[in-house]
Design a protein around this nucleic acid. Structure first.
Length: 199
DNA sequence: CAAATTTGACCAGT
DNA sequence: ACTGGTCAAATTTG
């Protein structure tokens, strides 16, 4: 079938630990967790759900951070357990092109690129404001939002810095790991001066 | 053989 | 009561 493979797994491997159908979505949602890191208490979790509107658009929701990024090896990391309400949730929408027909099999290969483009990503904090609707994928392309009943939330740009602060606030770590996770996100987060929004 | 994946059931929260 | 989420067991693949 299509390709259920995302470009680089972010840098970490994920082990699927469940799948459930979501009301309102035509496709089930897959729950992923760290493969080897769960053993270390890595709270990093990932959710993958394909939008019912765009079969090629994958909504990846990242919850928690990777604690295995550091030295790991030992779960003796100073990471308090209290983390059940104010977690960060970033959702990335990836769209792959439907191109990938049966045409031959290998050999063809012509695309080194991972047939996939990250359209937009939205991050939301537990106590912030939902973020959906950036001039990116939120508005579907060509099609109409149709069922867009969910997601319809406020469109407010929280403080990115805040997020980073919260993210690494309770720990030590530096504060650049985010770059590692979202290398090409800096630009997309804040619009270059222009209010998108609806007229 | 080990690891990863699958499906179902159970649990918790709303 | 329903939905959503997680865990557990069984199975499959490498």
């Amino acid at each position: 079938m299509g390709n259920t493979d995302l470009p680089p797994d972010d840098n970490y491997t994920w082990r699927k630990y469940g799948q459930k159908e979501i009301l309102g979505s035509k496709y089930p949602r897959a729950y992923y967790r760290c493969t080897h890191q769960k053993m270390y208490n890595c709270p990093a979790k990932k959710q993958v759900q394909r939008l019912d509107n765009d079969f090629y658009t994958f909504e990846v929701t990242y919850i928690g951070q990777h604690t295995c990024t550091m030295s790991s090896t030992a779960p003796s990391i100073p990471q308090p357990p209290p983390l059940l309400h104010d977690q960060m949730v970033m959702t990335q929408a990836m769209v792959s092109q439907p191109a990938l027909p049966p045409t031959s099999s290998s050999t063809t290969s012509s695309s080194i690129v991972p047939s996939g483009s990250w359209l937009s990503m939205e991050f939301s904090l537990g106590s912030g404001s939902g973020g959906r609707g950036s001039g990116g994928a939120g508005s579907s392309s060509g099609g109409g939002p149709a069922t867009g009943s969910r997601y319809g939330r406020d469109v407010q740009y929280s403080v990115v810095a805040d997020m980073a602060d919260v993210m690494f606030n309770s720990g030590s770590s530096s504060s650049n790991s985010m770059d590692f996770i979202f290398p090409c996100a800096e630009d997309k987060w804040e619009a270059p001066g222009s209010g998108d929004k609806k007229h």
